[in-house]
């Protein structure tokens, strides 16, 4: 009850603020164009809808997410359910994609695998976006020695053969889904940080930042409310494309045997397990690889679609 009250008292102020901004926009637009008022978000959404490939990608991703969420209901067998009479079996009506070396249903593991693969993809992308925003904002906003130090650090990380380092670390230390997410994220934020830094350098000189600064807006708020929204497009695109990168990287680590622990069904682990038998039951290797390829393809399509929709200048 008390929570309700505070929510109600807080809400009007917020509403008035956003309401003002919106009415300010609608008041301006009709004089510029004769079309119905549209927000930048609506314009971007309209552009995105024009791209067939991006929509196709979005459809594939949605289906994969649904499969991951409802895996328990969708999968014909449990993820670790063993059928001892069908070990490395060819596809049949009982096992549509055959079974692996322990007699586990390939289709079911493929569906359950979507969970971990997508989790690693999204988790890694979020970590890398977070680090990228922090490093990029600090370097771009404060400049000077902070900038030099951070950018040299970026150079060093970029000179790292990251996969080598991760493989060494995981082979000695062991790995879990969480550490895979964390460490993949720590090696994929550099591009975003550089973009944000560069954009901040030019944004800093603009009048609206000068105005905000002159009325005493604190640094943190200035970065969060005034600068970061202007690089929103880069952040969204980079996060999307990093999901695809992370899914490939996870599969790479798992395929070599040093990614997500072996029992967990991920597409990379399935490819690893398929290797000894893939000449006799090729589907064991074909299916997870093809699924992963389509997932990455779909995310890349969405990422490119978002880039074109959010930043029309960047179009080739």
């Amino acid at each position: 009850m008390s929570a309700n009250v505070t929510l109600e008292t807080a809400a009007p102020g917020k509403l008035a603020e956003s309401g003002n901004a919106a009415s300010g926009l609608t008041a301006l637009t009709p004089s510029l164009t004769s079309r119905a008022p549209r927000s930048p978000g609506q314009i971007a959404a309209a552009r995105f809808r024009k791209s067939t490939l991006a929509l196709f990608g979005l459809l594939v991703i949605t289906l994969m997410c649904l499969a991951a969420i409802f895996a328990d209901a969708l999968a014909p067998y449990g993820e670790n359910e063993i059928d001892l009479f069908n070990i490395t079996a060819q596809p049949s009506t009982a096992h549509l994609l055959g079974t692996d070396e322990l007699g586990r249903d390939e289709l079911s593991r493929l569906i359950f695998g979507a969970r971990v693969s997508l989790l690693v993809g999204v988790g890694t992308a979020l970590v890398s976006t977070l680090v990228g925003i922090i490093v990029g904002s600090f370097a771009g906003y404060y400049g000077g020695w902070i900038d030099s130090a951070l950018m040299r650090f970026v150079d060093v990380i970029l000179a790292f053969p990251a996969i080598f380092l991760l493989l060494i670390f995981f082979s000695i230390q062991g790995s879990s889904v969480l550490t895979v997410i964390l460490f993949l994220g720590l090696f994929s934020w550099m591009w975003l940080a550089r973009v944000i830094r560069g954009e901040f350098f030019s944004l800093k000189e603009r009048d609206f930042i000068e105005a905000a600064r002159s009325i005493g807006v604190p640094d943190g708020r200035l970065i969060w409310r005034h600068l970061l929204p202007n690089v929103g497009a880069a952040i969204i695109v980079s996060t999307t494309l990093n999901i695809a990168y992370a899914m490939l990287a996870e599969a790479t680590l798992s395929f070599l045997g040093f990614g997500v622990p072996a029992g967990t069904p991920t597409w990379g682990n399935m490819l690893n397990a398929a290797r000894p038998n893939f000449t006799t039951v090729p589907l064991l290797a074909i299916a997870p690889g093809l699924t992963l390829t389509f997932a990455v393809l779909a995310i890349n399509f969405v990422g490119d679609g978002l880039r074109d929709a959010l930043d029309p200048r960047g179009r080739a």
Partner: peptide, 9 residues
Amino acid sequence: AMPVFWFGL
């Protein structure tokens, strides 16, 4: 979009 090792396989 393809994993390198899968293409190899």
